[in-house]
Amino acid sequence: MSRTVLEVQGVTKRFGGLVAVRDMRFDVTEHEVMGIIGPNGSGKSTMINMISGLFPPSEGSIRLKGAELAGLPAHKTARKGVGRTFQLVRLLPELSVVENVVAGAVFGHRRRWGKPAEAHARQLLERVGLGASIGLPISSLTYIDTKRVELARALAGDPEVLLLDEWLAGLNPTELATGIDLVRSLRDEGRTIILVEHVMDAIRSLCDRCVVMSSGAKIAEGTPAEVLSDAEVIRAYLGEDEDA
C-alpha cells in the first residue's frame, strides 16, 4: 500500500481581513504528483508557502509523515524534508551555479558537505539538463536555466516532498516540452511532488490527482480528466479573464 506523505487538514490563512486560504484539506501519497490548480489569486501559492513554512497557517494542521509542520519556521520544515522552488525564481546571484545547488545539500533534509556535496550538485545539474552552462555566472543564465538551477537546489536535500510553484510558467513552447519531460522524469524516479500549475497540458500529462482552488477554498478534487470536466471548475475558470 502507498503511504500518505503529506496531510493537510482544515488549513486557513488570513491576511488581515482577507481569507487567502479557507479550510483546505488534501492528502498526498508517496510517489504521487499532486496538482494544485485554480485561477489567479485563488490561494495556491499561499498554500505552498504554509507547507514550506514561509509563514504559519492561521488555523489547521499540516503533517509530513505524521510530524506536524504547521507553525514551524522554514529552516525546520526544510530539515524535515520539504523542498521547494518559488513562483518568482530565487537564486543566489553572487554564488556560482554549483554553489547554488550545494546550498540545498548542506543544511537540509539529507546533508552533505565538501567534495560529496559538490559531486552531488554536479550530478543534479546534469540531471536537470544544465551540464553545458555549469561554469556561467548566475546573471548570464537563460530563463529556463535559472529554473533548472532552482530545481536542482530543491532536489539537493533529497526532499520527502517537492513543492513546485509554477515551475513551468514563462517557458516558450519548446522549453515547455523539455520542462514537462523533466518533471515527468522526476515523477518516474518516484519523487513525491506538489505541482502548482496553470499550464493545462502539463496538468494533464503530469498529475495523478488535482485539487482545484477558487477564492481560497477547495472546489474539486480528482484526476485531471475528472476535475477539468467538473461544472464548478469550468465556472471558476470562465468566471474570470484568464491571461492565456
Partner: peptide, 8 residues
C-alpha cells in the same frame, strides 16, 4: 528567504 528554505 532562500537561506531559510534550504534549512539554515
Amino acid at each position: 528567504t532562500v537561506a531559510r528554505h534550504v534549512g539554515i
